[in-house]
Amino acid sequence: MGSARLYLAVAARGFRRYASYRAATAAGVFTNTVFGLILVYTYLALWDERPDLGGYDQAQAVTYVWLAQCLFAALALQGGGVETELMERIRTGEIAVDLYRPADLQLWWLAGDLGRAAFQLLGRGVVPFLVGGLFFPTALPTRFDTWVWFAVALALAALVSFGIRYLVALSVFWLLDGTGVNQVLMILGVFFSGMVLPLNVFPGVFGEVARALPWAAQLQVPADVLMGETAVAGAFAFQAMWAVLLLAAGRLLQSAATRRVVVQGG
């Protein structure tokens, strides 16, 4: 009970910390809206040529664009969540201090990242989504329970997102410099989460593979849940599987890294 309160406090701190960057948030909202605008026109042109592409109609494609802009910062699809700070702490050796904290390292950073994600969803995500909904034809559900399932899908997506980035951050224990892995994370994240193009448009075996990767659990699955394009139970199972796998791998890597720090004496 006591430790639950601790992690809640850590999450609240993460939320407040990102909430304090007002100008940056406003700038992010603007940029996401502009990118949404550019993408929505290209999608409209694409769906003009091939209505029903990837099983979406035009309104669904538009909804997908704005959802992607809405979740871009919250799910840190391109990186830029708490893992940047974690990498820096590992690089400078300050991580040794964290290891002495009476809290679990992974849960600690997860709580902070969820707090961040919550703020960025509200602060950065809502406005582009509303702009999209106001000026373009969208396909939003009218049933209340669909929105509840969507919220669950988002929560699972946040876990998967953290799971990936935590693994990447811990790799700095061995690589010492995070620039390279960060870039790999950015590339894979943007492409395989479906920021460029919805994954259901990817053709053939390539598409099958892309839709099975963990990045699919972040944007494509919540989008399909929101627009009723997938069975909810199967979607949750897919997301939960990746969340469990990634977080477990994170724990394994974490204990290896901890041993390493202890052996090296910090």
Binding site: T42, A45, L46, E49, R50, L53, G54, T179, G180, Q183, V184, M186, I187, V190, F191, V196, L197, V201, F202, P203
Partner: peptide
Amino acid sequence: TLFGNLVMTGLDFVGILLMFSQVDSL
């Protein structure tokens, strides 16, 4: 990072290629 930059921007073009795998013109 040189290689990364190349791939990073290249994926944009892969996106366009994927589009054209589904349509003949935009």
